[in-house]
Design a protein around this nucleic acid. Structure first.
Length: 505
RNA sequence: CGGGGCGUAGCGCAGCCCGGUAGCGCGCCACGUUCGGGACGUGGAGGUCGUAGGUUCGAAUCCUGUCGCCCCGACCA
């Protein structure tokens, strides 16, 4: 019987129960996203509604990243959603990469259908002179603008970021991982020298890695993309690659060294200190709501989300255990003290004093939503001056003196943040395998998954052949790859370092 | 975009093969008893069966189109 049948049996669907990861990872993911109130499908094909709880997490990511961007000298700006087709065409390589998945605006007016009152049709008299492409990325509109901003080396560098939505008409979508419209940030910088632009590219890669590890609690491999995998408009694409619990890799962020490609396409030149005219050097870098998918798939378990405290909308939920109104009032007074003490330290505390649900129900619900710490206080605790503390990551419980809460909970939250990072790191290390033969490669790929570190001859042909035969791609050439003489596992040609392969999202 | 599956109450499904005007569980509403791990009883509300056509005396059920979702491929962040 297919697993979705089992799942949909009446008795298992009574509560908000999740399928298990081992039985059906995809189904587990989809159900978790919906049941934890992160997102749902909308009435628009391929587009999702990010629900308040999910959006709160995204806002936390934005806040952290935005600060990091500002700290490295960047400023936010906003460019239009629409890109005139002619501008889009100007950068052929890039345009070609996205052409197959662009939404295009051709008209600017609707009118009542004369044949069918109450229905609207596109007014054929309102056709645009030039079609507008809904941005799949903003290089075109931004570089055409930078042309106006840049004349001299004194105008450089330009360090701009924008938070925006983009549209890529995907054939197959999945909540957060691949949707037709998604939210992201895109940094676009312009520099006087190649060296400075490369430095910027690498700096932003470091920012992303730092963010992934310290906020998402997600270990990542920093690396460079192969020719076949890089952004079409870039000279070099750097990326951070993460490992999900099902052994598939996920690209969590990219940073591109654009060289002078866009400057040439949009004729953005500047006069250097030496009085010479030259094209501007560029970078672009971005992370998207896809990080939500990474966050979910990296840490969560069969009981629901596991959120790193640094991104959790609610750090601590407090569940009172009471029978009478009187008891609740007493408990509420105590809770007031605790939550004030925690809020003063910057933590978000939720007191779940609903009298419409029983404690057990609340426990399960907040676990599903990944709240890192739960406190339960009942009459027994009131007598003893204690509280029951449960941590979401390990599901361990302990009884704590009430007067220790304000000091111990912050420590516990820190410990949870560290623990889920360590757990993810251990997992990733366990599913990273060195192989030297193609036979071994295929075996590991099918039986174990994960990252496979292997020698590659550096050619696109070999990369394509391996992809064709195994569905595995080169995730990256790790920046810290050791020089190591070897032979390509596929072609037998010489290779100087190992690269990371994996099946990927 | 190709192959397969599925759209029936807020959610998950049964009914469809063999046409006769819709049912189950959860949830929801009310009242009572419960409350330290997803409570229970009693009563109640809720559905143009995705949508548009067609066949028929009659369509959730048969046929065609269309839209959407899921799975597998191709493509991609």
């Amino acid at each position: 019987m297919p697993f979705d049948r089992i799942l949909n049996n009446n008795y298992t669907s009574m509560a908000k129960e999740l399928p298990s990861r081992t039985e059906d990872y995809s189904l587990w993911y989809n159900e978790l996203v919906k049941k934890a109130d992160l997102a749902e499908h909308s009435d628009v094909r391929g587009c999702m509604v990010i629900k308040p709880y999910g959006y709160s997490i995204w806002e936390k990511m934005q806040q952290a990243l935005d600060k990091m961007f500002k700290d490295t000298g960047h400023t936010n700006a906003y460019f239009p959603l629409f890109v005139p087709k002619s501008l889009f065409e100007a950068e052929e390589q890039n345009a070609e990469g996205f052409a197959k998945e662009c939404a295009i605006v051709t008209h600017y007016r609707l009118k009542t259908d004369p044949q069918n009152k109450g229905k609207l049709i596109v007014d054929p008299d309102a056709q645009l002179e030039e079609e507008l492409v809904v941005r799949p990325t903003s290089e075109a509109i931004i570089w055409s603008t930078y042309k106006k901003w840049i004349q001299s080396y004194r105008d450089l560098p330009i360090l701009v970021n924008q938070w925006a939505n983009v549209v890529r008409w995907e054939m197959r979508t999945r909540l957060f991982l691949r949707t037709a419209e998604f939210l992201w940030q895109e940094g676009h910088t312009a520099h006087a020298t190649a060296a400075e632009a490369v430095k910027e590219t690498v700096q932003m890669l470091d920012v992303y890695a730092d963010f992934a590890e310290n906020f998402l609690a997600l270990p990542v491999v920093k690396g460079r993309k192969s020719e076949g995998e890089k952004f079409p408009g870039a000279i070099d694409t750097y990326c951070i690659e993460a490992m999900m619990q099902d052994g598939k890799a996920l690209q969590a962020g990219t940073s591109h060294f654009l060289g002078q490609n866009f400057a040439k396409a949009f004729n953005v030149q500047f006069t250097s200190r030496e009085g010479k005219l030259d094209y501007v050097w560029g970078t672009s870098w971005g992370v998207s709501t896809r990080l939500m998918g990474a966050l979910i798939m990296a840490h969560s378990d069969d009981d629901g989300l596991v959120l790193p405290p640094k991104l959790a909308p609610i750090h601590v939920v407090i569940v009172p255990i009471f029978k009478t109104e009187e008891e609740l009032t007493k408990i509420s007074d105590k809770v007031q003290e605790i939550s004030t003490a925690l809020r003063k330290q910057g933590y978000s505390v939720k007191f779940d004093n609903r009298d419409t649900h029983k404690p057990g129900f609340k426990f399960a619900e907040w676990e599903l939503k990944g709240v890192p710490v739960r406190l339960a206080i009942g009459p027994r605790d009131m007598e003893n001056g204690t509280v029951e503390v449960a941590r979401r990551d390990t599901k361990e419980k302990q009884v704590m003196k009430l007067d220790q809460v304000a000091v111990e909970i912050p420590k516990l939250l820190e410990d949870i943040q560290t623990n889920i990072y360590q757990r993810a790191l251990t997992f990733r290390n366990n599913v990273t395998t060195k192989v030297d033969t193609y036979e071994e490669f295929k075996k590991v790929l099918d039986e174990k998954g994960g990252f496979i570190s292997a020698h590659w001859d550096g050619t696109q042909e070999t990369e394509a052949a391996i992809k064709e035969e195994t569905k595995a791609t080169i995730r990256c050439i790790p920046l810290d790859a050791k020089e190591e003489a070897g032979t390509c596992m596929y072609s037998g040609k010489p290779s100087s370092k190992r690269v990371l392969f994996a099946r990927a999202y």
